[in-house]
Design a protein around this nucleic acid. Structure first.
Lengths: 191, 191
DNA sequence: TGTACATCAGTGAACGCGCGTTCACTGATGTAC
DNA sequence: TGTACATCAGTGAACGCGCGTTCACTGATGTAC
């Protein structure tokens, strides 16, 4: 069959979006090409018409997820919301419970650390953008170097406490972790 | 062949120790039973004389790694060192560069969150012990509830910043992440 | 206007490989007679 | 004291399965004549 102009690009986007969700939910290694393509309504053979390798899809999916998150943060900040809104939104139970729609770093950072340098570099770039957004949302009277370090500390706190809240089986402790993460991140933002 | 009394237990320990290192370095999923047994100087068939499943080994390896870390922390604290020494030791380049000997949570927490409840529960128990050690090292004049939340915030910060420092390809940024993590964790400990 | 052909996104069988797990077997030594 | 047997940690072939990747093929439609 012959397809509309833009059809292939649309298919590619569907694959990337499916991958971005499943990788965050299940981890990259646990998701196979065949199952992923089936989820996107295709057969596995066509995969290599879109990507040179699974690793290339990993990078595309990582970028897709990062773009979504960045957009979400930008919207919040442009509405005049503070860093506090970002922190509270990040450490909500709903974010803990839907990793497939959430922060790619929280779901995949340890796995990314073991991937090819090219993938790690792409991730590094996205993480720098995220930190720049956080930095820009810190009080303007802070020296730039302090803001930069503070942004790292704040996001590190968010990342770590969210992951703890996800791993733990005790639901009371899990909520306490989210709350403690908010407290700690806000303390770092305002002191 | 017949073996010494205690021989089997010794073999089991060797398997667990090998697993504890490789899981932290490569991730649980990337490590196969056959390769692991070969590393321990055995053939893969004998594995199931020691463990009912790979998952059971995961739990044993997690406990082995946690025990090692707890011991290390206890030694530091008993020498009269403060929480600051723990934080600085955790966020050293050598810890970033040798995950196979380091914190199991930093290497595996996201993967653990996707494992069986039994494994997650075992991890939760170990994490509670860790947090209790941190709590005990916080100033005694802090109310207990505050110390408990602060311990979560501090360890979350350490966890998140170490993982960032491991994932990133920019070496300058990586060191900055470790340093910012120390600053943030110490600020939370002393404020 | 009608026919032959080129295009190309997607198909599905097949590749070699490693996975977790099972199981009949080995063989050196301790124990029973 | 010498022989037959039980023990059991470890061996290695085999199980079904899914992995990432390759490739000859399909077939509906647009284009050329």
């Amino acid at each position: 069959m012959r397809f509309d102009k833009g059809h292939k690009e649309q298919t590619r986007r569907r694959i990337v979006e499916t991958a971005a969700r499943r990788f965050r939910k299940e981890g990259v290694e646990a998701v196979g090409i065949a199952g992923l393509m089936a989820d996107a309504g295709l057969t596995h053979g066509g995969f290599y018409a879109h990507f040179a390798s699974k690793e290339e899809l990993v990078r595309a999916a990582l970028e897709e997820a990062s773009d979504q998150s960045r957009e979400r943060r930008a919207v919040l900040l442009e509405k005049g919301e503070s860093l506090e809104a970002l922190v509270r939104s990040y450490l909500r139970p709903v974010h803990r419970d839907t990793p497939e729609l959430g922060c790619a770093a929280a779901a995949l950072i340890a796995e990314i650390a073991r991937h090819e340098p090219e993938t790690r570099s792409a991730f590094t770039g996205r993480l720098k953008e995220l930190l720049a957004q956080f930095e820009a949302a810190l009080p303007v009277d802070m020296p730039e170097e302090v803001r930069s370090r503070r942004a790292i500390g704040i996001f590190g706190t968010m990342l770590g406490t969210l992951q703890m809240a996800r791993a733990v089986t005790d639901p009371v402790l899990s909520v306490k972790m989210l709350e403690s993460g908010v407290e700690a991140a806000l303390a770092l933002a305002t002191m």
